[in-house]
Design a binder for these strands. Structure first.
Lengths: 222, 222
DNA sequence: TCAATTTATGACTTATGGTCATTAAAACGT
DNA sequence: ACGTTTTAATGACCATAAGTCATAAATTGA
């Protein structure tokens, strides 16, 4: 009899419903001001039940984080499927990241938030499903980026003196740093304090920076 | 009579002593696991007294953040005093940032932590001394970086097609992104998941990335 | 010396993450 | 169909920690 399987499915669905509810509340009230009671109410369950599905609040956050990562990974993967050169993929990645941070601001907040969680808090859930899955998604993204650089070196659009995996990590780190800078200085513009207070559009900053990186890695011989 | 002045000095000193104590505890126990009671005990004061000097815990964190920023600003400023070219300054900045993140890891944790605080939590202390001072220090740092790029364009070591203020912001954002990546993947090394699991040293990643950026901005005609 | 002002205290309030004994429901064997 | 066992859900309860406030101590100034 398939009772066990059905129960497993039901359990999965319930977990998912909880994440749905949590997401709604977190996106509405902000991460820090949302309580487990809020989430329980939104999920139409008692608080205790939440803890049957998630070890603690952080694991619930990680589950949402994972949704964001899954979304982003799919977008990144899609770039690799395009009939373009490796170098063009690099530019496309930058656009994709920037786009994602704009259109899925809520998930992007989770990225920023989760990356600043300290190890001590993370430890109790490190071996749990949510964390493992997030790490896996993170690795997936870096792998896709690495592939693009490999392809670029292969097709001759990127200088072959570079290590693709290293470039991938540098690209991701630098781009996220820039996006986070504009996230921190909210409202999408950053004020340069020197001389007259010039205001830069975050989009320009990122695009410009990408031009710079592409300039540095592209194979001149083409 | 100078009673008022003396009292002002004493108040200043007490505030400083509290930050000293808080720093000790935060550095020892970690930011998240330190309570106001812990700090009160370390400062040999009652908890209530802490709130006479700081509006809330976050403002106390901001005060420590400010100390870190002050330290870093001094190091950055020192680079500008060296008899070197603008381009060399850019490299020196990168080294300084990396060095700081290693030698003052505690303060660096504060940078990472404070940058991920959401606006709602920050709002109540935004107009307070600590936050204002932190913003000012942040601006100072960007100004110094901008100066270096200006000098580089002036002395011909950096291409004149760039906007120095924009470069400064990009440089800082990207570098911090990379450092944070290695901070997140603790223990100073980052594992690349693609192909065989290659491990990169965070120091190499940053240095290498800096070479790349310098390559892109340096004036070839020299 | 004493009233006024400033500074310090710690018990108390409130908020919230997390637990657990109890209850309800479902599954299963007969 | 019925009683037993297993699983799921509940919400009152607990522990912790931020922040408050009436009270007390200390300092100042006349």
């Amino acid at each position: 009899m398939g009772t066990a399987e059905r129960k497993e499915r039901e359990k999965e669905k319930r977990r998912n419903d909880i994440v749905d509810a949590a997401e709604r509340v977190f996106f509405l009230k902000g991460i820090d001001s949302t309580t487990m009671d809020d989430i329980a109410e939104a999920a139409e369950l008692s608080k205790g039940t939440l803890y049957l599905y998630f070890r603690n609040k952080l694991e619930l956050l990680a589950a949402i984080h994972h949704r964001g990562l899954t979304l982003l990974t799919a977008l990144i993967a899609e770039v690799l499927a395009r009939p373009i050169t490796g170098l063009e993929m690099v530019r496309a990645f930058s656009n994709t990241l920037e786009d994602f941070s704009k259109k899925n601001e809520n998930y992007y907040h989770f990225f920023v938030h989760m990356e600043s969680v300290d190890m001590a808090s993370l430890e109790p859930i490190m071996d749990g499903w949510a964390c493992q899955a997030c790490n896996q998604k993170g690795n997936e993204i870096i792998t896709y980026l690495t592939r693009a650089f490999q392809i670029g070196i292969q097709d001759g659009t990127i200088k072959d003196k570079f290590n693709p995996a290293m470039l991938a990590i540098q690209f991701l780190g630098a781009t996220r740093g820039l996006i986070q800078l504009s996230y921190f200085h909210r409202s999408g513009h950053i004020v340069a304090p020197s001389l007259e207070n010039i205001t830069f559009d975050a989009r320009d900053l990122l695009r410009n920076f990408n031009d710079l990186m592409i300039e540095a890695i592209k194979n001149e011989k083409i």
